[in-house]
């Protein structure tokens, strides 16, 4: 008798606690809760470069979800650069992107050495996992590849931030991202580098109604707004991880 009652009560509580259906029209601030942007890992090279007054060279390596076709200037890498310039007016921020569509982590890593020789960035932001998840690459192989990639980038003298796949509710029944999210978290922990949890952040936005990611909109507008918010969150993440906030600068 009792467990049944408790179960029933839990449900009622769940329904009562559920927030009312969201209004789709009101634009929201796309804020990100602190716990999704906090990291214990640091970016020592970025911190040094900024403190020494050198330019900050950033390289974004990613697959198709790191750009918006025909609107690169609105994609998150460009938005990150703009936001960093706003927040760190005294610093020159250069940003390059290396988009490698349909490339798994394992395929991308061998090219890293050459890529780094050419660009010599202070910070590499590596977005990966989506292609691997779509191809159901063996998670162990995936972890080894990401691990090797991080090592290669670090040895070439850069700080590294990992970005995991997007939250994509429409393809949730078709792409299983969880093992890849877990493995990226594990690699980030293993190397003590920051992981920008794009998946959780976009998930949060969808839950809170900042964006309707289920939307079947054909236009480019939603993509632009999401990338704008991602760029802003990522700039905050970089500044926090490098301890460049106003309170920490002295």
């Amino acid at each position: 008798m009792k467990p049944g009652l408790i179960l029933g009560a839990l449900w009622l509580a769940a329904i009562a606690a559920a927030p009312p259906a969201r209004a789709d029209d009101a634009p929201k601030a796309c804020d990100v809760p602190d716990n999704l942007l906090s990291t214990e890992s640091v970016l020592p090279r970025v911190a040094d470069a900024v403190k020494a007054g050198r330019t900050l060279d950033i390289l974004v390596i990613g697959s198709r979800s790191s750009t918006i076709t025909s609107a690169e200037a609105s994609a998150y890498p460009a938005r990150l650069q703009a936001n960093l310039k706003d927040r760190l007016p005294q610093v020159t921020v250069n940003l390059a992107t290396e988009i490698q569509p349909r490339t798994s982590s394992e395929e991308a890593v061998p090219g890293f050495v050459k890529l780094m020789e050419g660009k010599k960035p202070t910070l590499v932001i590596w977005q990966t996992g989506t292609v691997d998840a779509m191809r159901s690459v063996d998670p162990d192989d995936f972890r080894n590849a990401v691990d090797a990639g991080v090592v290669a980038l670090q040895e070439a003298g850069a700080d590294v931030i990992l970005i995991n796949p997007q939250y994509s509710p429409r393809t949730e029944t078709m792409i299983s991202v969880t093992p890849y999210l877990d493995n990226m978290r594990a690699v980030a922990q293993g190397h003590d580098i920051p992981l920008f949890d794009r998946f959780a952040i976009m998930h949060q936005w969808n839950d809170e109604g900042d964006f309707d990611l289920f939307s079947a909109a054909h236009g480019i507008d939603l993509a632009k707004r999401v990338h704008d918010c991602l760029g802003r969150a990522l700039s905050k993440f970089v500044i926090d991880a490098a301890h460049l906030g106003p309170a920490q600068q002295n």
């Binding site: 697959s63 979800s65 918006i68 076709t69 779509m134 429409r170 078709m174 054909h218 480019i220």
Partner: peptide, 18 residues
Amino acid sequence: YVATSFENPLYSEEMGIM
């Protein structure tokens, strides 16, 4: 159905699964 009716540029990569 999803493949034929859903074309969000945000997810052009993920839609490759189709």
